Amino acid sequence: MTDTPTPVLAPATFQQRLLDWFDQHGRHDLPWQQDRTPYRVWVSEIMLQQTQVTTVIPYFERFMARFPNLRRLAAAEQDEVLHLWTGLGYYARGRNLHKAARVVVEEHGGAFPLHSLDEMAALPGIGRSTAGAIIAQSQGRRAVILDGNVKRSLTRLHAVAGWPRRPAVERRLWALADHYTPNHRLADYTQAMMDLGATLCRRGTPECGRCPFSDVCVAHARGEERRFPESKPKKALPTRTTRMLLLRDARGRVLLEQRPSSGLWGGLWSLPQFDDALALQAWLDIHAPDSRLDAPGASFTHVFSHFRLEITPQPARIGSLDSIGEARRWYDPDNPDAVGLAAPVKALLASLATFTLDMPPGP
């Protein structure tokens, strides 16, 4: 089997059809399409990974208002970056965005290494496709992209069998993407390829009747649009359990602790977590012996890509706590701090009613 399926159209014909469609039906007024600097394109590309445009727009605008350039982002604290990322999900993206900004400042003098696709792709959280998008969109230079939307369109167009992240399948898709990429109108072409997958060649309900390639699409000719791209072989998601301690003081504040910089919810602020009720009680016996437990809250499940987390909130009360240790803080739900919160924790904090406590306040 060769790496490249036989192209369905000559590159020039493919490009002309796509750009004609884009000129008439593409998206031309997205915030990051205005003033296409490498920085703005980069932030938008990272935010758009596995996230819809309509969700990203308000986050992008708030992010640009607070961090209008790369040096401002690099100088910020991670907490502030993750606070603006709260609710967007996939928080490693936010951490890598911050880390990459500091690398560019410290190792590249504050300017992206746009002369080198390899150096761009080596920056934290970027990779080959995002590097290509930044170069093509901001510089107008030829660079190939292969994000999820482009993979889906090319996979259907050629009926490429196999899960697109398998190395052999991905090589074939990169070869196709390179074959069709032009030497002109690169910003428009890359945006058009992303728009095609996002607006017409969608995952569940492709609009083949409006597609400029419906007459040559192999999956459409077979009536197998929904077969492609093929899904990753499924494995049953394991379930983990955790107890989240909702410890509140006499002022109604909630104790939070910062997660380690790597791993689950890295760098975000969360409720103290324990494997079971015994471990939670043991921690209270040591750190908050005067606390009182309330009845546990209703358990709920938060689903990650590789496991399910069953969370049981455990409310507790304390009059005061002299020392809360490092990487912990008191959080006032009525006057919230600007910190990054894990999504389930944000939901739990938002659901708290006005708090009253029938124990005397501490000194």
Rank of each mutant, 00 (worst) to 15 (best):
P206M: 09
C208L: 09
T4W: 01
S261G: 04
T6K: 14
T354S: 12
S291P: 02
A338Q: 10
D322M: 06
L30V: 03
L186F: 07
L245R: 13
R317S: 14
Y331V: 00
L117H: 12
D188H: 05
T51G: 14
I318H: 01
G94P: 07
L30A: 14
R156G: 09
P360A: 15
R142H: 07
P363V: 14
E257C: 13
V81P: 03
E107T: 10
R328M: 06
R66Q: 12
P260H: 14
P167E: 15
T241R: 13
W265R: 02
P113W: 13
R226G: 11
G204N: 12
W283Y: 14
P260F: 15
E326L: 04
E170I: 09
D3T: 15
R27M: 09
A168Q: 05
Q50H: 15
P206K: 12
F22E: 06
I145W: 00
R202F: 02
R40I: 02
C208I: 08
P7E: 10
R165F: 07
E257P: 00
G94A: 12
A350K: 11
Q33E: 12
P124I: 10
E77K: 12
S351D: 11
A65P: 01
S214L: 00
L200T: 11
H83D: 13
D79S: 07
V169Y: 02
P344C: 04
T37M: 02
A175F: 04
I46G: 00
P212Y: 01
V160R: 13
L123Y: 06
D23T: 09
G87T: 01
E80P: 03
T6S: 12
E257W: 09
L278T: 14
M193N: 05
A136E: 08
L264I: 14
P5K: 08
R62S: 12
L97M: 15
G297L: 07
R292E: 15
I57E: 09
E207D: 11
Q49H: 15
L154P: 01
R66A: 08
G148R: 06
A175L: 07
G266D: 13
R166Y: 01
A100P: 02
